[in-house]
C-alpha cells in the first residue's frame, strides 16, 4: 500500500481517499461480537475494517475511597500489544497506550454512564470496582473510536458474578443475570484534519499524514462528556464547532450499528 503523506494530502484537497471511501465513512466491515471471553464478566471484540480491538470487563469488591464512601469505581487500562503492530514493543504501557486508556475512561466516567452509587454494596466498606481492559489485536488505525466502541459493548454485555452471602467471596465461575448500572452510552469519535479536510476512521497511513485530531465523546442525547485534541496544528473555534457536529453524527451511526448487532438495550 502507498504510504506517501503527500499523496494522501493531495487527494484530501479533492475530498478523496486512497481506498475510495468518503471522508466521513467508517471502514467496513463493522463487526461487534460480545461474550468472546468466558473468563471476563463482560467482553467484546470489535472489528472496523482491518482494525481489531478486544475489551474485557472484570469486577472486584474493594473498600470505597474515603472521599466517596457510597460509590464504587471504574478503571480503564489499554495494552498496545506487540502482536498487533510491528512498531509496538513488549514492556510497560507507553504514552500512546496511556492516552488511549484515559480518553476512553473520561468518555465513560464524565458522562456518568455507570451509576457509581449503584456499585456500592455497603457504604464505607464494600463497593464494586469495574475494570475495563482494552487490548489491540490488529492496529490498522483509528484506535480511539474502535476501543471506545469495544469498551461500551463489553460494559453492556457484563454480568455480575455470584457473591457468597456469608463469606463475601466472589465466585467468578458463576455469573448472575444482573447487568451493570449503565445509564448512558457515550462513544468517542475522532475527527482528523488532513490538509484542511476532516476525516473519520483513518488507516495508519492517514493517521501519519494528519495535522490535528480531536476526539469527542458524546451520548445519544448529544451531550459531550470528553474531548482530547492531538496533533501539532491548531484548530479554530469554528472548526471545533464543525468537528463536534460531525462527531455526534458519527457516534449516532456507531450506536445504531451497535444496537443492530447487539439488540436494543433492555
Amino acid at each position: 500500500m502507498i504510504t506517501n503523506k503527500d499523496t494522501i494530502k493531495e487527494l484530501a484537497a479533492q475530498k478523496k481517499r486512497l481506498d475510495q471511501r468518503n471522508l466521513t465513512d467508517y471502514r467496513q466491515p463493522i463487526v461487534i461480537e460480545t461474550n468472546i471471553s468466558w473468563t471476563a464478566e463482560g467482553s467484546a471484540k470489535v472489528q472496523v475494517g482491518e482494525t481489531i480491538v478486544m475489551a474485557g470487563v472484570k469486577l472486584s469488591i474493594d473498600k470505597p475511597y474515603n472521599d466517596t464512601p457510597d460509590q464504587g469505581g471504574i478503571m480503564v487500562n489499554a495494552e498496545l500489544l506487540p502482536l498487533s503492530n510491528p512498531d509496538y514493543e513488549p514492556g510497560p504501557p507507553g504514552i500512546k497506550a496511556v492516552e488511549l486508556a484515559r480518553v476512553v475512561d473520561r468518555g465513560i466516567r464524565e458522562a456518568k454512564a455507570i451509576d457509581l452509587k449503584k456499585l456500592c454494596i455497603k457504604p464505607g466498606e464494600k463497593a464494586w470496582t469495574v475494570i475495563i481492559d482494552i487490548i489491540t489485536i490488529n492496529d490498522a488505525g483509528s484506535l480511539f473510536d474502535v476501543a471506545g466502541l469495544a469498551a461500551l459493548a463489553a460494559l453492556r454485555s457484563a454480568r455480575y458474578p455470584t457473591v457468597d452471602e456469608e463469606t463475601g467471596v466472589i465466585d467468578y465461575k458463576k455469573k448472575t443475570d444482573k447487568a451493570l448500572p449503565l445509564t448512558k452510552e457515550p462513544l468517542p469519535v475522532t475527527v482528523y484534519k488532513i490538509n484542511g479536510q476532516f476525516f473519520i476512521d483513518p488507516n495508519l497511513a492517514e493517521e501519519k499524514a494528519c495535522d490535528a485530531r480531536l476526539t469527542v465523546a458524546s451520548d445519544a442525547d448529544g451531550q459531550i462528556s470528553a474531548m482530547q485534541k492531538g496533533g501539532s496544528s491548531p484548530l479554530s473555534v469554528a472548526e471545533i464547532n464543525e468537528i463536534i457536529s460531525l462527531a455526534k453524527n458519527r457516534a449516532d451511526f456507531l450506536r445504531e450499528e451497535m444496537n443492530r448487532q447487539m439488540g436494543g438495550r433492555k
Partner: peptide, 19 residues
C-alpha cells in the same frame, strides 16, 4: 517467543498486566 494471558483471561480475579 512471548506468552501473555490477557488481564481478563483467568478464571478468577483480574490478572495484573506486565508479565
Amino acid at each position: 517467543c512471548y506468552y501473555n494471558m490477557m488481564p481478563f483471561s483467568g478464571s478468577g480475579e483480574r490478572i495484573r498486566p506486565g508479565g
